[in-house]
Each structure stands twice: as C-alpha cells, then as structure tokens.
Amino acid sequence: MLAGAVVLWLFVNGAFYFMSRIRPGRFDQTYAPHILIGGGIILPVVILSALLVWGLGILTDPRRPGDGLVVRVTGEQWWWRVEYWPEGATEPIISANEIRLPAGQRAEIHLTSDKVIHSFWIPALGGKMDMFPGRDTMISLAPEKVGTYRGQCAEFCGASHAWMAFSAVVMEPEAFDSWLEAEAEDAVEPAGDAALRGRQVFLSEGCGACHAVRGTEAVGQVGPDLTHVGSRQTLGAGRMALTLEDLTTWISHSEALKPEVKMPAYDLAPDRLDDLARYLEGLK
C-alpha cells in the first residue's frame, strides 16, 4: 500500500516537475492520443484489475472458520457484553468491555446487538463488522502480534457512541489459556478492610441489581459483568483508565462522563466511595 502510494506520489510530482521546469510550454498534440489511451484507459485497467484480483484473494479471510475459540460480543448502549466459548464449551465465560485473543490463532467473533445497530472494529486486526439486533454476524480475526489494540464502535449508536470503545489484548496462547481459566472463576475475596467495606457498599447501594459479581449476591444483567473488573485495562468501555482515582470519578459522575448512560451517578460519602473503588479495583 505504502509502496503504491510512494510510486503514485513520485509519478504525479515528477509529471508536474517535468511540465513546469524541464519542458514548460505547449506540447505537440500528437502526444495527446497516446497519453489519453495509455494513461486514461490502459494503465487504470491494468492497475484496477491487479487490485481487484488481489482484493478478491483476501476478501474472504475475515469469513474463514476459526481454529476453535468463539467469542460472542453483544453491542449494548454503550458497552460490550462478551462471552468466551472455548472449543467444546457448554457454557460461556462471561466478561465485558475487553476482548482477549490468543496470538497465532484464528478466533471467530460472533456479533449481535441489543437495541440499535453497532459496528465492531479493531482497526489494527481487521475490518469492521456491523452488529444488528436479532441477527448474528461473524468476523474471524487472526492476530499475529502480542499487544493491546484499540477497538471502537464504528456505527453511530446514540449519545455516547464515541465513548463506546474497548481494548483488544492479544496474548501468547499459554498466557491466554491461563487468563481464560482465571476469568471463568468466581470473584476473589476482598483483600483488606477497605475492600471488605467496599463490598458492603456495593451490595447495600443496589449495584448488584444491574451488575453481576459472580460468587456474591450481585447477579444483575443490565450492565457489564464486574467479576474481574479490576483486571481490565479500561473503565466504562474505554472511557477511562482502571485506577482508583478514575473509579471514584466514574461512580460519582457517570452521567457527565458518558451522556445518557443508564448508570446513575452516585452521591456517596467520600470514605464509602473510596472503599467501593478499592473493592472494585481489587476484583482481579
């Protein structure tokens, strides 16, 4: 792609330089048919044919069947419900707002949506694929390099569309397997008094009506699963970093940070807010 652009740039600028510096003035008209037919018909046909054949060759890559892992992603306003179905699984491993994939393997991403059309896009790994309510679409991705890539909703889906993002984390296959095993576990016990008090705040403030933390009474399905929220890289679907400071800011200002979000901003006493943030941050 870059090479093609460089050749084109050199050609256009070279032609301009030739016309303006080397041979200014009028050209003989006998050149015209050659330039028109060669540059206007033959060259574009050859270039377009080559691009078409090359493009058709790679067109079906994103529809190729995967090597086993299936990730089901549901677009919500404005976050991502994520289920991992490893090969042979009978029930999914639930997560949210982050996609992890093993390097060197092709994974099938099955997409659907809750209410409106979204579009799933990790530019570094592949093309876009729309997510429709009541319909399944599929894109398969075969990431090669370990790293973290940004994913983004690419179809306008409401007030906070621009804040509907996620991290795509590509890991070594062994690391991915052990991460997935840990992700399937229930939430860890809070470590320390503050986190213990935080869990109490979480349950007494009714957070569990919308959020699930597996292994506790919190089983809500309205918002993202928070069982391992502390191990994620971002908060609020790519809105903020997952730090204590951002957690307190998010809980107390969710509506300002993400317009029209379902989660209300909580006006908690500072020490209770801090405890709650410590609890969530500890949910590794």
Binding site: V45, L48, S49, L52, V53, L56, G57, L59, T60, R63, R64
Partner: peptide, 18 residues
Amino acid sequence: AIGVIFVSLPLVMIGGCQ
C-alpha cells in the same frame, strides 16, 4: 467487456456464499 470480466471475477475466485 471489461465490466463483464470484473463482475465475473468473484464467481471465479470466491465461488461461494461466505
């Protein structure tokens, strides 16, 4: 003719409903 060839290429190269 070029148009017909271009439209036919996916039939040759893809040949399915993927």
